[in-house]
Design a protein around this nucleic acid. Sequence first.
DNA 1: ATTATTAGTTAGGTAATACTAACTATTATA
DNA 2: TATAATAGTTAGTATTACCTAACTAATAAT
Lengths: 225, 225
Amino acid sequence: MISLTEENYLKALIYLSFLAPGVEEKKDVGTNELASYLKLKSSTVNEMLKRLKEKNLINHEKYKKITLTPSGEQNGLKIVRKHRLWETFLFTKLDFDWIEIHEVAEQLEHIKSEKLVGKIDKLLGYPNFDPHGDPIPDKHGKIPQRITKNLSAVDIGKNCIVLAVSDTSKDFLNYLEDLGISIKTEIGLIDKIAYDRSIKIKIKDKQYSISKKVADNLLVNEKFN
Amino acid sequence: MISLTEENYLKALIYLSFLAPGVEEKKDVGTNELASYLKLKSSTVNEMLKRLKEKNLINHEKYKKITLTPSGEQNGLKIVRKHRLWETFLFTKLDFDWIEIHEVAEQLEHIKSEKLVGKIDKLLGYPNFDPHGDPIPDKHGKIPQRITKNLSAVDIGKNCIVLAVSDTSKDFLNYLEDLGISIKTEIGLIDKIAYDRSIKIKIKDKQYSISKKVADNLLVNEKFN
DNA sequence: ATTATTAGTTAGGTAATACTAACTATTATA
DNA sequence: TATAATAGTTAGTATTACCTAACTAATAAT
């Protein structure tokens, strides 16, 4: 049996090693890194690492980095799955505000009932992404690929999050900086002007107009709304 | 802040002191009674009693009985409310079987979010009774009165639970025993025969016919179905 | 009224999860 | 390469929530 606390450690390890934004491939995690993420002292974490290793959930040698075992990863992904399904439930079925769902899902993710997860998944229509646009692992732990598209392909009225840029020239990046656009910036698509194919967008309630060329170079991830 | 364990003690005290079937008016609870209900040792319970008293949730003097303070009762009823709302949710919204809902609700009842409880309550249409027919305390802790009726007043197709008998003669009780009817027996109402006003019932998938006189003396509580 | 039984308490122990303070190993820098 | 900085570990402490064993108080039975 994995305790609630142990589950939180696994989730943190999953996050830091490959789920955090910007982490492309799996990376090993250090004790202090984990401690500071969990807002705990490294000695506390160190002790827990022994228990997790004992339970064959992580690999860890003294003074070395931490990696998840297949079992640890599987179990951690289950928590991530539950968290994101509950967030989706709260948002779409109970009209919770986008900002409130995380905290409640932090509690709900620890409810132990395979059947409940399955029923919630079904009720939601087996969603692949949560309201933040983050992928929901399936019951086997498989993570759906993000649907990344150009900003110019986003539908009018939708919001999206900037994931990457396909032009990395100084000029382009400077221009983005002036607009206040960087990774994770939320952009709302207001309108598409047929005449010159320019696009009207909204960033933090301020409107801008950008050309199709600029929009084509912004890779984004559509959000729920 | 009331811990999960403390919540379970409060819930148990609520149950033993006035919510358990057969308890008509509030009664004081003993340490051992509580311990055996919670399947714990009395020493363990004794220690917890100190903390609950410390937190002003119970009244307790050495070697004397335990009573809940208004705060303890209020807090305990909140847990009962959540438990029964979640059971109703699982049963009516997620098609859980009647038998499975308790265990999952035991976990869900500890989720801390006023808003979540309110939303679930609303989603369910502010029910007064859970699928077992037990009353759901409202947000102020008020407990709806059970709708107790004679078996003869139950609608065709409904199931109900025997709560009491209004005839306690030996003859009547013996007759009930022969039919396998006692307190908490579940009875399904199959049909009402207009001719002699007799009633066709089902007990554990076996059908019986009883007279109106018998049905009038059985007090029952309608269940969900 | 004495004694036996039942109810309740105390003392001391354990496991899980946190902490602080002091230590050691590893890595980076001058 | 010596040393400073960073990363990681160990030792000892606290709290919560459980336990067993041994005790005392209250109640029931003869």
